[in-house]
Amino acid sequence: MIAEDNVLLREGLVMLLTSDGHEVVAVAGAGPDVLPALLEHRPDAAVLDVRLPPGFRDEGLRAAVEARKRLPGLPVLVLSQYVEETYAAELLAGGAEGVGYLLKDRVSRVDEFLDALSRVAAGGTALDPEVVSQLMTTRRDPLQALTPREREVLGLMAQGFDNATIAATLVITERSVSKHIGAVFAKLGLPPTDSGHRRVLAVLAYLNS
């Protein structure tokens, strides 16, 4: 399901998703259409623009929050021309499973965008690096204790990546990623958790508190 008012971008997204083998069950171009369509089709994932007609404010975001209230865990990937930490916090308040919040620019990196979407569809998280850096600025003081590498690992973890991806991004071994993650959790006083979603949730809950 796609909600986007700009026809060019909407067609582009449909093209992108179908070419990757997904089926687009519904498209919406206006705010009031989003929630009914979500409730009717219950898609595997929804890609929603924050700002939609008629008000051009945050209709898409509100629809996403409301839909997840009615259908807990409904995977939504929210796209926006700009990212706002507050919006991320509102999305994450209903649980971080199946939540994505990315800058619209990121669709230009097709593979990364599709990867983020499938992560969200599978109940994972995809947060824009800009959101994560905003969150990390807010919690600047406790994060001072971390080494630069540990902060990098924390940032990637908060974006929703797994160990393998983090290791590939930073060009280090998965073992050292695990070591860094252990150190981050110890320094921030978080209870150690196994890898996967729950760990991401713990990190986001910490950054968002």
Binding site: E84, E85, T86, A89, Q134, T137, T138, D141
Partner: peptide, 9 residues
């Protein structure tokens, strides 16, 4: 402004 204030260290 609320969003701005919330984002401060």
């Amino acid at each position: 402004l609320r969003a701005l204030a919330a984002g401060q260290p």
